[in-house]
Design a binder for these strands. Structure first.
Length: 259
DNA sequence: ATGGCAGGTACGACCTGA
């Protein structure tokens, strides 16, 4: 089983790239973020034609999430959740689904704008509510994966210039503590299960030639429960789509499991 | 401290992202 997460930064623009990437990688389950499409405009027919079931929750201009599942390997998504209890949030940032015996939660964590701002407080509160939800889900589902754009670089090794980023949004103490709390609930960052090359990132600013200079952050993650961790045999960032024309600023991340 | 790039909205700048 291969699961993936990709912040596509507008599915309207990135649909051809998504289809190309699905054909190349054939993941079984994919969580998308920042589709930026209302449900009426979601390209369900094109994704269906590519061999995937899809469920989605969008809004105008911002946010928007979707989960794809391969028709020939895994079944359709059921028990779809688009809201976290206690978080009265009109923004479409969450999609929890059950696919076979897998519980899969796709997240687009708020960006946070600037440490101390209203958006930052919203992010911290959002993570707290999300953490409680994940804790409950972990007790109900043995095989549980939480993927998405977390907008948190967990360690200095996930930052191209840790000194320059110290205290900034995406790396600040409270954000990193929120991420560690998720791990404390019993989730594992699959990327860190394996020896990795240094300076592997999943997001690069569009400006200043950041990708060419590999000035990025690792903020997209695949976290899994203990049962999934025990069968995980690969976790990586796929830089390839970031080299294509009109790329998303995020690269897809993938994890593979023997069961 | 600011802008730099990209997408969306809506057609002129402005908002958001990270």
């Amino acid at each position: 089983m291969k699961i993936a997460s990709w912040n596509v930064n507008s599915l309207k623009v990135r649909l051809p790239q998504l289809l190309q990437w699905l054909a190349t990688e054939s993941p079984d389950v994919v969580g998308l973020q920042e589709t930026k499409l209302v449900d009426e405009s979601f390209p369900a027919a094109e994704i269906d034609a590519a061999g995937y079931h899809v469920v989605f929750a969008g809004q105008k201009a911002y946010n928007g999430v979707a989960v794809l599942s391969r028709r020939d390997t895994l079944g359709e998504a059921t028990d779809v959740a688009t809201d976290i209890p206690g978080l009265d949030d009109p923004q479409r940032r969450v999609m929890g689904v059950t696919i076979g015996d897998l519980r899969f939660l796709d997240l687009y964590v708020p960006n946070g704008a600037e440490v101390g701002s209203d958006k930052y407080e919203y992010k911290i509160d959002w993570l707290e509510k999300c953490s409680r939800y994940i804790e409950a889900q972990l007790q109900q589902h043995e095989r549980f994966a939480v993927v998405g754009d977390f907008n948190i670089a967990p360690e200095d090794a996930d930052v191209h210039d840790p000194a320059g980023w110290t205290g900034q949004v995406l790396v600040s103490g409270p954000e990193r503590q929120a991420f560690q709390r998720l791990l404390g609930l019993g989730l594992t960052d699959t990327f860190r299960l394996f020896e990795q090359e240094p300076e592997i990132f999943s997001w690069w600013d569009y400006r200043m030639g950041a990708f060419r200079r590999n000035r990025g952050l690792r903020i997209d993650h695949i976290l899994v429960s203990a049962a999934l961790r025990d069968t995980c045999n690969l976790s990586r960032v796929d830089r390839e789509p970031r080299t294509w024309d009109r790329p998303s600023d995020h690269a897809p991340v993938l994890a593979e499991f023997s069961l």
